[in-house]
Amino acid sequence: MRYAHLLGLLFLSFFSVAQSSKQIDSALAYQRQLDLSYSDCEDSPLTEDDLEHFKGLPFFKVDTNYIVKAKFEKIEGQKPFVMPTTTERKPLYLKYAKLSFKLKDSIYALYAYQNQQLVQDSAYVDYLFLPFTDRSNGVSSYRGGRYLDVRIPKKDSLILDFNRAYNPYCAYNPKYSCPIPPEENDLPVAINAGVKYRMLY
């Protein structure tokens, strides 16, 4: 009986390590793809000078503590609203869901929004936008906050990977119009994961 118990513990330990390794690999693959897209002279948000010297985005070290399972609660009865941007542009968003999660022994929540123009594109019909601010802003990350993208889950939960947090395009180039994270999406904790600011080369 004791032998079987030890085997069970060993299996759980091996499974946990394998799962963690898979999560790290996935986050690193995403970051490599992000670097690749920023180095593309046709689609990059970087200025010509920054693009010429670009060697990769500065990332926090991938940390599985910032990969969390979030409870997904769809919010009913909402009406589209104008989300402020860094310019005069006034995009319409719908507050779509509340995402609750545990991070470092505390419970937090972020709201996910649905872009009412983007949702007309079949490729983005299940796309949700999570703009947020946290205590790392203006210290080690962009002062204006960062973004996450998720897809509407089929069940009542999803995985939030803050290692995939990225900066608004206007962090690199003022010609872009970027949504300003709503106050309700301010996290009272430093999210030391994802893209830092700014040292591109």
Score class of each variant (00 low, 15 high):
153 P>A: 10
65 N>K: 14
194 G>K: 00
146 R>G: 02
88 E>P: 02
164 R>C: 03
79 K>W: 04
63 D>F: 03
43 D>G: 06
173 N>Y: 12
5 H>Y: 13
67 I>Y: 01
47 T>L: 10
124 Y>T: 01
115 N>D: 15
18 A>F: 11
53 H>E: 14
57 L>F: 02
101 F>I: 06
41 C>Q: 09
112 A>C: 08
159 I>Q: 11
50 D>K: 05
176 Y>I: 07
120 Q>H: 07
197 Y>P: 00
99 L>P: 08
126 D>P: 00
120 Q>E: 14
57 L>R: 05
44 S>P: 10
16 S>Q: 14
25 D>W: 00
56 G>P: 12
110 L>C: 11
150 V>A: 08
36 L>T: 12
158 L>R: 03
182 P>M: 13
107 I>T: 15
190 A>H: 03
107 I>D: 15
8 G>S: 02
66 Y>H: 09
102 K>E: 15
75 I>S: 11
190 A>T: 03
135 R>M: 10
142 Y>E: 04
61 K>H: 10
23 Q>C: 02
179 P>C: 08
125 V>C: 02
136 S>Q: 04
137 N>R: 03
46 L>F: 09
140 S>R: 03
39 S>Y: 03
146 R>Y: 05
90 K>Y: 05
105 D>I: 04
98 K>D: 06
1 M>F: 10
3 Y>M: 10
3 Y>A: 12
87 T>A: 12
75 I>P: 04
13 S>T: 13
141 S>T: 15
113 Y>W: 02
110 L>D: 05
195 V>F: 02
40 D>G: 04
115 N>Q: 07
123 A>Q: 11
139 V>M: 08
191 I>G: 01
131 P>G: 06
1 M>I: 07
15 F>W: 14
134 D>A: 06
190 A>F: 01
47 T>W: 04
66 Y>I: 00
33 Q>Y: 03
15 F>L: 14
25 D>M: 07
55 K>Y: 08
165 A>N: 06
162 F>G: 08
91 P>W: 06
152 I>T: 07
75 I>H: 11
136 S>F: 02
60 F>I: 07
7 L>R: 10
65 N>D: 15
116 Q>N: 03
145 G>F: 05
129 F>G: 04
98 K>A: 15
40 D>V: 03
8 G>A: 08
188 P>H: 07
114 Q>E: 14
81 F>Y: 13
168 P>I: 03
54 F>L: 06
82 V>Q: 06
17 V>N: 07
59 F>N: 13
100 S>W: 01
147 Y>H: 12
64 T>N: 14
168 P>T: 09
31 Q>M: 05
81 F>Q: 08
96 Y>W: 06
137 N>P: 00
104 K>C: 03
101 F>W: 12
83 M>N: 09
5 H>A: 15
24 I>R: 00
3 Y>I: 13
97 A>N: 01
175 K>P: 01
77 G>E: 14
14 F>G: 08
15 F>Q: 13
55 K>D: 13
40 D>H: 12
84 P>G: 12
118 L>H: 03
100 S>G: 10
187 L>R: 04
105 D>A: 13
140 S>Y: 04
136 S>N: 02
195 V>G: 02
36 L>R: 11
7 L>D: 13
42 E>W: 12
186 D>M: 07
8 G>H: 03
65 N>E: 15
12 L>K: 09
91 P>R: 06
8 G>E: 08
22 K>D: 11
3 Y>T: 10
182 P>G: 09
